[in-house]
Amino acid sequence: MISVAVVDAETPGNVGTIARSMKNFGLSDLLLVDPPELDPDGEAYGFAGQAREDILPAAREVSFDHLVENYHTVACTATTNEDDSSHVRYPAKTPAELADSLAGVDSDTCVVFGRERVGLTNDELERLDEICSIPASADYPVLNLGQAATIVLYELRGLTVERDQHPDDLHARADETAVEGLHEEFSTFLDTIDHPEEKRHRVRRLFRRLVGRAHPTGREAKTLRGVFRRARGRVEATTRERRADEE
């Protein structure tokens, strides 16, 4: 299940806009940390569209600690003040990359949006599990809170909207048995080609990281495993022929 949290929103209208986007893209659980007053006759309900009937009135007020303790958390932020030399939660995923990544997460997830003017603080970012940032022009990278939420939730629609309600196919990641089988085949392939023994562990680790980022489908894992098996067979056949000629 994917929930949405808004931390310390200043404008009720943005809360309503986010609730509406949740309704658009198949989410229903809205969590509010230090929210403004949401008057049923005010702009939050006015901006919420049909979400005024269910999502907004059912929103729960929780603490930031509650998010950290109960969910796999994704911080949505425009800038992180980090680079590859500082690893608070660097690097950030794009919304599309986040959707692919969360397809393999079994635990409850909460996508966390911060304040309109300053977003989430660095201390808050440090407590969350990963970061999502929307690529935008360097001249003006900061999006309105409601716009940012709409973009992120749109990209997550493949995980939250039933297949028969939208035209996109879910990313069917290979199960762990298939992925481990691919790693075993690659490891055997390295042994077969007599890759330098002192380098094999590092190459296996690099391959595991590559596959982990790629999230291959079952068919892709099976095909790659077949390629390594076929290549290994060719190497073994060539080796046997060479030994026979030498004899």
Rank of each mutant, 00 (worst) to 15 (best):
M1I: 05
S3W: 11
S3Q: 12
V4P: 05
V7Q: 02
V7C: 14
G13Q: 03
N14Y: 10
V15S: 03
G16L: 13
T17D: 00
A19P: 01
R20E: 06
S21E: 04
S28C: 04
S28N: 14
L30G: 08
V33P: 00
V33G: 02
D39K: 10
D41M: 00
G42S: 08
G46W: 07
A48R: 00
G49V: 09
E53S: 06
I55Q: 07
L56N: 10
L56M: 09
A59W: 12
V62T: 09
S63P: 01
V68H: 09
N70M: 06
N70H: 14
T73W: 09
T77K: 02
A78R: 11
T79K: 02
T80Y: 11
N81W: 12
E82Y: 08
D83C: 06
S86M: 12
H87F: 11
R89F: 06
P91F: 03
D100Q: 15
D106Y: 00
V112A: 05
G119Y: 02
R127L: 15
L128I: 05
I134H: 03
P135L: 08
S137R: 14
L143D: 03
N144K: 06
Q147Y: 01
Y154M: 07
H166Q: 15
H171G: 08
D175V: 05
E180Y: 00
H183R: 15
E185L: 04
E198D: 13
R209T: 10
R213V: 03
H215A: 13
T217Q: 09
R225L: 11
R232Q: 15
R232G: 15
R234Y: 08
R240H: 11
D245A: 14
E246Q: 12
E246V: 07
E247K: 09
